[in-house]
Design a protein around this nucleic acid. Structure first.
Lengths: 344, 344
DNA sequence: TATTAGCACTCTGTGAGGGAGAGTGCTAAG
DNA sequence: CTTAGCACTCTCCCTCACAGAGTGCTAATA
């Protein structure tokens, strides 16, 4: 599709621009990369690349800037080679996460902070959601006269608790039976499966009387409906320092992105089933507020099964190479923690 | 200290400036408030107010802008009168929090969002910290072969869980005894008291052998040290829209403030013991990044005892009157929830 | 034929200069 | 003590001109 020379020029322009957010001129790039041909030739090539949509000009007589398509080509090129190991984050994570191993929320919170401080972009970390988490055990503890605390243990090491009203004034004995019943029925299934199963089951039960089973189901539904992925995003103060966000409008977009966790979860759904590091560049992103941002993300695994997602969010003019190796290394690191942890 | 006329002029200037972030001129303010004297007289008064430090001029021939001291005077004046009830937030909170009553984290998260969306500033909500929370009950649940889940119930309705390694390979029986021991010893004390007591106790125990008590203490320490207040801040996307934050530097300060929860907790310590709504204006704030921001905050109560804190963070040029009534109403509302809830 | 040097052209960014507008401070009159 | 009048100051905005950077085209070159 592109001849060797065009490739070299395109990648050179992208790299120069990532280094320094000024439109890249033919003279500059030719000198810096000593192509072996003159600026005039580069100009011709760059004009062609612009026609093909890889580069664009802010105005007639400025240098060139990569388009999202240009970044995409550059990234594909990067991904052809083996992703390098980023020893710095491996070390940092080892040190910081040592004491947090037992608590997945703190673990991911710290991971997002570490990703941010090493990349100077936004660090992202998401716990396994209802589709990934499988129920390990459920415990019901009477908490006050009118309230029950339900504790949910997943096989991923997530614990969630929810207080619910003891509307049906169930006795301690009943609660034990309910817990045993639910554990027997649902342990090992994902939260999502359980939700679906609950719906079906409840319809069937409705015909019958107000049995213990139907109480158990109602209680379980209340708890399950509450289950959601936790999203950790860190580094706003860091990323704002970049020249890409010297414009207030861009910062507004960014803060909307950070506050709207649902959009992130929507995005995550696409990434979680894919293998390896995923790169979403600018306008490729379906979320409107993120069309000027790029996302580098990877799922981490819990043994065989997918867990949650971690990643980096930055401007489209982003150091993809380093971000990719950071995310890749961190994801492998997290997966290894969970493997060794032997949870469940 | 100030004669009646000066007061009127000062408050008029502050109000005008809050309405509209342009320096306030003598002609404008005199017309708008029909003082009964001419702009020239206002000019004299305003010059005096400037000498006294209540007003300042951005440059020689601009109008006046309130200083922090000016805002302080204005706010003291406001607080003399009865704080008005803000029915809108009462309604909204009633509606939104109905279903969340049982979970203090969601409750406060939603409160901070509501405060933000009604004020268009940052909404702040903090759970009770170790000094306010009293232990209700502790439960220890074996979780996997090597791990224990410790569930902490406070009388404030907070539940925290922590997974810890079962280093000492305690049996189920031992765990029950430990839990019973801890509940007997510590129920009813604040987390902070328990921490202090633990320290003393552990030193005494160290002399003795590795008894069950000393294991209980160690386990308890791990859990307690993890206990901290949760800080919820919402509304960055909202507050950035204000003209006060059209400057990128200001936004950077703001995002640093939001990311540094420790600074917020430090600030909260001063507010929690005070009665009613507290106002911290700009440079009065000990936290450096917040010297251009004002905080309106109030503790909410759990029955007799202080709970956590809620509040609003905005620019010093802030609608204090409305913010104060919002915070006051919301705090009373939360306190009433906890009262009715009859937790503990 | 592909490459290159040269050159005219275009567009931005910056800084100077000038005028309008707003508001002050001072003075002198009421 | 208050007020009208007026000169003065400072910002903001507009325009203009110019330097600088980079392009696209053309004609010469290997």
């Amino acid at each position: 599709m592109l001849d060797e020379r065009s490739k070299r020029v395109l990648c050179a322009v992208v790299e120069s621009y990532i280094d320094n957010p000024d439109p890249v001129g033919s003279r500059y790039v030719t000198k810096r990369y000593s192509f072996g041909f003159s600026p005039a030739t580069s100009r011709n090539i760059m004009a062609d690349l612009e026609d093909m949509g890889f580069l664009s000009q802010p105005h007639t007589s400025a240098g060139r800037v990569p388009t999202d398509k240009g970044y995409r080509f550059y990234v594909e090129n990067l991904l052809m080679e083996k992703v390098s190991f980023h020893s710095e984050i491996a070390e940092l994570l080892t040190r910081r996460l040592k004491s947090l191993r037992e608590d997945i929320d703190s673990l991911l919170d710290e991971t997002s902070k570490t990703l941010s401080s090493l990349s100077h972009y936004l660090g992202l970390a998401v716990t396994p959601g209802p589709e990934e988490s499988t129920l390990g055990r459920i415990e019901i503890i009477p908490y006050s006269d009118e309230r029950l605390a339900v504790i949910l243990f997943t096989n991923e090491g997530i614990i969630k608790h929810k207080v619910i009203k003891n509307d049906l004034s169930l006795s301690r004995h009943d609660l034990n039976r309910i817990a045993r019943y639910l554990n027997r029925e649902y342990a090992g299934f994902t939260i999502k499966e359980i939700r679906q199963h609950l719906l079906a089951e409840m319809e069937r039960e409705q015909a019958l009387c107000d049995s213990l089973v139907s109480r158990a189901l109602r209680l379980c539904r209340d708890v399950m409906s509450y289950y959601g992925a936790n999203v950790f995003i860190a580094g706003l103060a860091e990323i704002i320092e970049l020249p890409d966000f010297s414009d207030v409008e861009r910062i507004k977009e960014l803060s909307r992105t950070i506050e709207d966790k649902r959009a992130i979860i929507k995005l995550i759904d696409r990434i979680i089933d894919a293998e390896g590091v995923q790169v979403v560049i600018g306008s490729e992103n379906p979320v409107r507020e993120m069309k000027a941002l790029s996302v580098i993300a990877s799922a981490y695994r819990e043994g065989e099964r997918p867990g949650g997602v971690i990643g980096i969010i930055g401007p489209t003019r982003m150091d993809y190479s380093s971000a990719i190796s950071l995310v890749s290394t961190a994801a492998r690191f997290l997966s290894s923690i969970f493997d060794k942890g032997g949870r469940g």
